[in-house]
């Protein structure tokens, strides 16, 4: 990926029902013991009936990998980003995903950073892309809707996953990531001004640059007047922004030239932005023409 980070293709999916692995009584009991011991020191009680409705990021991500990555597209780096844990919390899921992903990529999970985690994963992918030998990077952002204890915060509304395959620029289509910016320790009182400055620097306000604001940033209303704006609905704090961003980057006659997406993680005080420039398609005669987004 010597020429920078290009989004080749993406897939997203909403999942119904619980993890199939939880049908195995041994795994279910093992996860239950783990979650019981996890919550006890914090005065919380593990709720097995809630856990039975929870999902496995391994299962969710594996489905998207099968859908998104061709056998002839070996991946070199796989990063699994999440905020809320899944129902098999002790499992080295990323190591398993390496096994089911073409190329058996180097893989790890990135967490404890709320909605900033996928942005950090993208930075890491960009830095890997600059090194020799890295052909493709796969970023998987996942969240499931069950917290099997009284967490005191809302869980995501649905089980959702977004997979984004990055690599060398395809013959046509896709999108080039031209900026990833992250600010730590941003006070809520300062976020509107800082976000407005950053959005302007990244092109927001120009008629062909669309803006996608995450639910964490939307209340700050940092968007320049006149900028085409999409606000991510609340309920999916980690996947929501990327889900909506893909709508803007997909095919269609009224799509913008570039998209700037931004979100604020209010609990951990991160402001993050990404800018992607759509690459035009050459036309229907192109043998490599494939839709960016696979639903």
């Amino acid at each position: 990926m010597a020429t920078g980070l290009h989004l080749i293709r993406a897939a997203r999916r909403e999942f119904d029902g619980p993890a199939a692995l939880l049908d195995d009584p041994v795994l279910r009991d093992r996860a239950g013991e783990y979650l019981t011991d996890l919550t006890r020191p914090y005065g919380l009680r593990f709720d097995p009936s809630a856990a039975a409705r929870g999902q496995s990021y391994g299962e969710m991500a594996a489905e998207l990998i099968r859908e998104l990555v061709g056998a002839d597209e070996p991946v070199d780096l796989l990063v699994l980003a999440f905020a809320v844990h899944d129902m098999l919390p002790g499992r080295a899921t990323a190591a398993y995903l390496s096994h089911v992903c073409p190329g058996t990529p180097m893989s790890f999970a990135l967490c404890d950073q709320g909605s900033a985690a996928p942005f950090t994963a993208l930075r890491i992918a960009r830095d890997h892309a600059a090194s020799a030998g890295c052909r493709r990077a796969l970023l998987l952002t996942v969240e499931q809707s069950v917290l099997p204890y009284a967490a005191g915060v809302a869980a995501p509304e649905r089980h959702r996953a977004v997979a984004m395959l990055y690599g060398d620029a395809p013959p046509d289509g896709g999108a080039r990531v031209t900026a990833v910016r992250q600010h730590a320790d941003v006070d809520p009182a300062d976020v509107a001004a800082l976000a407005a400055t950053e959005l302007r620097e990244l092109g927001a306000g120009q008629p062909d640059v669309a803006v996608v604001l995450g639910a964490g940033l939307a209340p700050a209303r940092p968007t320049p007047a006149g900028a085409p704006l999409t606000v991510v609905p609340p309920g999916q704090p980690t996947t929501g922004l990327w889900w909506t961003l893909l709508d803007q980057l997909g095919d269609g006659p009224d799509r913008p030239r570039a998209v700037v997406a931004a979100d604020y993680e209010p609990d951990l005080r991160y402001l993050c932005l990404v800018r992607a420039v759509r690459r035009p398609r050459l036309g229907a005669g192109s043998a490599d023409l494939r839709p960016l987004l696979r639903h």
Binding site: A92, S107, F108, A109, A184, D185
Partner: peptide
């Protein structure tokens, strides 16, 4: 160190 970007790297077990 609140100004730093902080995150966890995991799921490689003890090789993380």
């Amino acid at each position: 160190l609140g100004h730093a970007l902080a995150f966890t790297v995991t799921q490689q077990s003890c090789a993380s």
